[in-house]
Design a protein around this nucleic acid. Structure first.
Lengths: 202, 202
DNA sequence: GCAAATTAATGATTTATTCAAG
DNA sequence: CTTGAATAAATCATTAATTTGC
């Protein structure tokens, strides 16, 4: 095992997907080792739910000590983890709400909650986002506030040197962006109209 | 002004190295040159709407002849192109449907297709699919067809094909936009010259 | 004519969905 | 079923086109 030859086909803030499709239609997927999962879980629970690129690389290197893995795998893992964690939370929330709300609110002119958008964490490539020591509970992702959403914005972190421990630091509320509505206008702006040409390369 | 050039290091190349430097507050984005757009459009319109990785690399190399660009840029371009093309189409379709359906849809009988998954072109793994290997279905990313397959005519994708050149001819994605009176010749500040180009790469 | 202020396009990121391996 | 992989949809953010006042 441990020979996916994943080769880190690249995938993060640079590439979306596209598995290595060579001459082998077999798309075997990475199977994380228990130790790897442990590490990943630990990182995720420490608050870093969306590691920037450089962190991803570091994590990958760490995981590699227990089996071959690529950056893309790490990226996907966090993506799925976030997604599923959120969905689960949403479902729980939904059923709770269902119980607490025997009657459905009319949805009238008031301000009804209807979206629970979380503006994710880590974002930017290049943010010195690191995480520091500060033991606390885990569970981030979802503030579960009956109304507003919670966005894990960034963990107030200071570049520590503990390379092997991710500890939860803190989560902050994220103000949502006002921004004006961007109407969707559809129009193409490069209308060569009609032309024909061809390329030749080697 | 047009040429702000992505000089030297260029934009934000792919993963491999990535700027692990957290010293670039300017998140400049790639601004494709007219020629690059031309190439991309032609490839897209030739049917390859979702090039696999190796194709992406090839395309990038081609584009590089006109300015620095990374694989990721190419990937994003196609992704956005697909997405927006689809959205436009959907919107057009929607407004048409709105006109055609003053009444609520029957919902019965016929069995209308409403799934518009584009399994079309370059899907994925293992498919060394170099845009239309067969000169039959050019798959032009479209769907629609709700009910009768009338109305919207897809782009005239000409499945020219050949392992070494992309060709494209015909009109762009339609766009009947009244607000489109660019009767000015300064749309593209580049050698529009004639409607025939011939690029040789080596 | 020119720049600041607006608006429209569109590159880059993140989230939601879907597909399929195990 | 769980979950890695891939993609489409939605969103954010920056750049180019404009408009506008001088």
């Amino acid at each position: 095992m441990g020979d996916q030859g994943q080769e880190s086909g690249g995938s993060r803030p640079s590439y979306g997907g596209e598995a290595e499709q060579r001459n082998e239609p077999v798309r075997s997927r990475w199977t994380p080792k228990p130790e790897q999962i442990l590490i990943l879980e630990s990182i995720f629970n420490s608050g870093m739910v969306n590691p920037p690129k450089d962190e991803t690389v570091r994590i990958r290197k760490m995981l590699e000590k227990f089996g071959s893995v690529g950056d893309a795998n790490v990226f996907y893992w966090f993506q799925n983890r976030r997604s599923r964690s959120r969905r689960r939370q949403r479902q729980i929330q939904a059923s709770l709400t269902a119980v607490e709300l025997p009657q459905a609110p009319p949805h009238g002119g008031g301000g009804a909650i209807q979206f629970d958008q979380i503006n994710a964490a880590g974002f930017m490539p290049g943010s010195s986002l690191s995480f520091s020591a500060n033991s606390s509970s885990s569970s981030c992702l979802m503030g579960s506030g009956t109304s507003s959403s919670s966005g894990i914005t960034e963990n107030t972190c200071i570049p520590h040197n503990s390379h092997d421990f991710y500890s939860f630091s803190g989560l902050q509320e994220l103000d949502h962006n006002p921004i004006f509505s961007h109407s969707d206008a559809s129009s193409l702006h490069y209308p060569p109209g009609e032309l024909s040409f061809f390329f030749l390369f080697s």
